[in-house]
């Protein structure tokens, strides 16, 4: 099988570029802890009993350290429980998100907080809010007739 010299060169260059990309995201994920969101812990939720299962029996913020919080949030048609969260600037928030009904999205535009809320599963993501602002938190997965109204805010106070 004959391969043109320049084609070989191109395949090597192109593949090398892809390897560089993979190494960059691999370092980000494995060396700097920037894994995509996800949680494979042993918390098994019955989607029908979300509000009876800890920690979602008591949704909301839990202060766990100096300006560090766990946020247990239940997505439902068409909102988030609790909504309108307020936190101080610089707060590190560990979001734990599930759904009480269908699949929802959990996205804060302008940040990398973007994950799926899936019934029966808990999704997890950590983010530090360094800028004071009123952040928009919206559902970016179609969830029904009122999907476009499913949003709330996270207010970061300076």
């Amino acid at each position: 099988m004959h391969i043109h010299r320049l084609e070989k060169l191109w395949i090597i260059i192109g593949t090398a570029m892809l390897v560089v990309f993979l190494v960059a995201i691999g370092i980000g994920a494995y060396a700097m802890g920037n894994h995509p969101p996800g949680h494979t812990s042993s918390i098994k939720l019955d989607p029908e009993k979300v509000y009876e299962t800890p920690p979602f029996d008591n949704p909301g913020l839990e202060k766990i350290g100096e300006n560090e919080y766990n946020a247990y949030i239940v997505a439902y048609i068409y909102g988030y429980n609790p909504g309108n969260i307020e936190i101080p600037v610089g707060a590190t928030v560990h979001f734990y998100v599930t759904s009480a009904d269908v699949v929802h999205g959990f996205n804060i535009p302008g940040t990398i907080v973007n994950m799926m809320a899936i019934p029966g599963e808990v999704n997890e993501m950590t983010y530090t809010f360094d800028e004071p602002a009123e952040y928009l938190l919206l559902c970016n997965e179609y969830c029904g007739i009122g999907h476009e109204y499913m949003a709330t805010t996270i207010t970061v106070k300076g």
């Binding site: 995201i25 994920a29 995509p36 969101p37 996800g38 494979t40 799926m116 599963e121």
Partner: peptide, 17 residues
């Protein structure tokens, strides 16, 4: 399904490769 729970990050990364 990179933004989904229930799947280990390593298997996500392997499929990314």
């Amino acid at each position: 399904q990179l933004m989904e729970p229930g799947i280990s990050p390593t298997w996500k990364y392997i499929q990314v490769v």
